[in-house]
Simulated scan of single mutants.
Amino acid sequence: MSEVKISAEVRSEFGKGAARSIRRENKVPGVVYGHGTEPVHVTLPGHELLLALRTPNVLLSLDIDGKNELAIPKAVQRDAIKGYLVHVDLILVKRGEKVTVEIPVQAEGELAAGGNLLEHVLNTLSVEAEATHIPEAVTVSVEGLEAGASILAKDITLPNGVTLSTDADAVVLQVLAAQAEEPAAEAEGEAVAAEGAEA
């Protein structure tokens, strides 16, 4: 897992007005906390942060007033309509430290023929991993699965050093049977027959 270097400026102005002013400069207000330290309010470069956050659980190497800190995103707020970053909470981590995070579940492969549907019951898995080796995602094969099949959390192979925090028996993916549709021509024929009987 690669580290993304980002410079952070300590800020002393708070409130909605100050936050709006920061965002007008294409920057994002945030707070960095963890390891029993006092929260540090920072301003981060908007474009660089947006690119970094495309990677789930990205490891950020923060330069805060000349001091280097490692952090991962804890909470990211985006504008509901325009999608720009409103605020970010970052939690400090250390190399070798284990953290609990959510990682996306990706399905690959084709289901058995029959038009069945794959339902993602869980889009993410809660796992414990070393802070500098958090997997970006976990991939699950659904090749050839038929209606009624399901994949539980414990069935998913995790990378070395990563342990499951989600309930082992939780259903992650399941295959739903295709809905049977009445052929249109048949239905039309029945309607005509019914009209003839009424006449």
Rank of each mutant, 00 (worst) to 15 (best):
E198H: 10
A113W: 05
V99E: 11
N26V: 04
D167Q: 12
V140F: 02
V76K: 08
K98N: 09
V76C: 13
L50K: 07
D63C: 08
G34D: 01
A113Q: 14
A197T: 10
E181A: 03
R24N: 08
V31E: 01
P39H: 08
R24T: 07
E143Y: 02
K154T: 03
E38D: 12
L44E: 07
K16P: 02
A52D: 11
L164P: 03
A80L: 12
I156A: 07
V42M: 09
I22H: 04
I72E: 04
G96V: 12
L158M: 04
L85G: 08
T100N: 15
A197S: 06
G46R: 04
P45R: 02
V31I: 14
E48R: 13
D63E: 15
V138Y: 10
T55R: 09
A137G: 00
R20Q: 09
V4Y: 02
S126N: 09
E13Q: 09
H35D: 11
I103K: 06
G196W: 11
G36Q: 04
G148V: 02
T139V: 14
G114S: 08
T124R: 10
P159N: 06
G34M: 01
S7M: 05
E25A: 15
I134D: 00
G66L: 14
V10M: 03
V192D: 00
T43I: 14
R11V: 11
K82T: 11
P183T: 03
A147I: 05
